[in-house]
Amino acid sequence: MKIDFWFEFGSTYSYPVAMKIEKMVTEQGGHLEWKPFLLGPIFSNQGWHDSPFNIYPEKGKYMWRDLERICEADGLNYKKPTSFPRNGLKAARIACLFSGEKWVPEFIRSVYAANFELDLDISLEEILKKCLPFSDEESFTKIKRANTSLAKQMLKENTDQAKKKGIFGAPTFMVGDEIFWGGDRLHAAIQWAKNNQ
């Protein structure tokens, strides 16, 4: 059983999913692939130049309250970010470049916690350094590598792949060619994977 989890660090609804999906999938004997990508280019193709939660105020108001309820139900700490959406570009490059490393899922969760629990600016290298499970020197080395052309290209390829697959938002779960969009579809994606792989 394999599930691809397509996520964006600035995505509100990706936060609670990122904190629980690995445990849920592995408990079912499945394999999880973390797929960071950027929503900006996808939204731009749809004619949006900001988050739809900012473009449509009533939708945004609902989303923040909904996220608060979800986090409360999941037992997650939550603090509404003072800036939204935050720039997760460097974090996404790190997640792409080191995708095969065992520490990456914990790094991803730490970045989400920094953004949605601690209200920290995840675009800043000093914040990302604290999210990495290494010494200061090694962390800065990894951040520096995430600024290379290879890391940039890997993230671009992920985003292009998301477009080709028809992904239009985050979080999105893919089981083969089947798309499940939204945190509330996680259980359906897992069930589909169990029944069809």
Rank of each mutant, 00 (worst) to 15 (best):
R145F: 13
N147S: 15
K80W: 09
I122Y: 02
G75E: 12
E137D: 13
E125N: 12
N77C: 07
Q153G: 09
I167Q: 04
T82R: 11
I122M: 07
N158P: 02
S139E: 04
I127L: 06
K102T: 12
S83A: 14
T159W: 04
Y78P: 01
S99I: 04
W103C: 00
A95C: 08
D121V: 04
K130W: 06
K152G: 08
R86I: 08
P133H: 07
A170D: 07
D119M: 08
K144Q: 15
A92K: 00
K156E: 12
C71H: 10
I94F: 02
R93H: 10
K142V: 03
R69P: 01
L89N: 08
L155Q: 02
E126N: 11
V111W: 01
T141G: 10
E157G: 03
S149C: 13
S135F: 11
G166A: 09
L89M: 11
K163E: 13
N147I: 05
V104G: 02
R145S: 13
G75C: 11
K163D: 10
K90I: 14
L97A: 03
V111M: 05
K130E: 15
K152F: 10
K90R: 11
V104Y: 03
I127F: 05
V111E: 00
K144C: 14
A91V: 02
G166M: 12
P81N: 12
T82Q: 13
T159A: 06
E137F: 09
R86F: 03
S123I: 07
A73E: 15
K102E: 14
A95D: 07
K129S: 08
Q153V: 07
P105R: 04
A146F: 02
L124Y: 09
C96D: 05
R93V: 08
R145I: 10
E101W: 05
K90A: 09
S149M: 15
F98A: 06
A114N: 08
E72V: 13
G166T: 05
A170Q: 03
K142Q: 07
K142G: 01
K156P: 01
A151E: 05
E117M: 14
E126T: 10
T141P: 03
K79S: 14
E106Y: 09
L97N: 00
N77Y: 09
F116R: 00
S149R: 14
I167E: 02
M154R: 04
E72S: 15
V104N: 01
E106N: 12
C71Q: 11
V104F: 04
S139Y: 00
K90V: 12
A162Q: 02
E72D: 15
K90E: 12
E138T: 10
C71W: 09
R86M: 14
T159S: 10
R109P: 01
K163L: 14
Y112V: 01
P133T: 04
V111A: 05
I70G: 07
F98K: 01
L97P: 01
F116S: 00
A92M: 05
P85S: 08
P171M: 08
F84N: 01
D74A: 13
R69F: 13
L155A: 06
K164F: 11
K102F: 07
I94Y: 00
R69Y: 13
L76G: 06
Y112M: 07
T159F: 04
N77L: 14
F134L: 03
